[in-house]
């Protein structure tokens, strides 16, 4: 899909917070010099084309009393797809990436309780027979993911 200047402006603006108001899109449309209807139509298309993977609240599991943890596994190539199916079957796996390293599967667990991290990682180890290395954050130096469109 070809993105025009308005699409790009929308992508940049929509990575920032949407206001809590009755007609939140209307204000942003005005800011960007378009109509509410056009903004909503373009956003729907960006979502359908998967240029936006999700639009909505970003939750922090830790602030809910839960936890996040980055985990890694060294999965043998011939077992990769089987292990992947088992890992991704856990709803606690929020995202998962294949990476170029002996530790080739990296995923984030998001759980409603701190204990949920260990329980889920242990379950994955039992199911796959592969060690799950756990890298909980000790300090966060920056968060605010933005991509310039």
């Amino acid at each position: 899909m070809k993105l025009d200047a308005t699409d790009r402006a929308i992508l940049n603006r929509m990575q920032d917070d949407l206001p809590l108001s009755t007609h939140p899109y209307a204000g942003i449309a005005a800011e960007l010099g378009t109509s509410e209807n056009d903004l909503l139509r373009r956003l729907s298309r960006l979502k359908e084309e998967r240029i936006i993977t999700r639009f909505g609240p970003f939750f922090d599991a830790a602030a809910m009393g839960g936890a996040f943890c980055l985990c890694a596994m060294a999965v043998p190539a011939e077992k990769f797809e089987t292990v992947l199916t088992k890992v991704n079957a856990h709803p606690e796996v929020a995202h998962n990436y294949e990476r170029t390293h002996r530790l080739n599967m990296w995923f984030v667990l998001a759980t409603e309780t701190p204990e949920g991290i260990g329980a889920t990682a242990d379950a994955i180890e039992r199911e796959t027979g592969i060690e799950v290395l756990r890298f909980p954050k000790l300090q966060e130096f920056f968060i605010g993911f933005r991509v310039a469109a």
Binding site: D17, L20, E49, I51, R54, F55, D60, M64, V147
Partner: peptide, 29 residues
């Protein structure tokens, strides 16, 4: 709607909601 907006504002102030925004697919960009 007002009750929902109130609850959402509270969830934001407690950090449960970080922001309401788009997650871009950087590959496609």
């Amino acid at each position: 709607e007002d009750a929902l907006l109130f609850r959402l504002a509270e969830l934001k102030s407690r950090g449960v909601i970080r922001r309401i925004a788009a997650a871009p697919n950087h590959y496609k960009l």
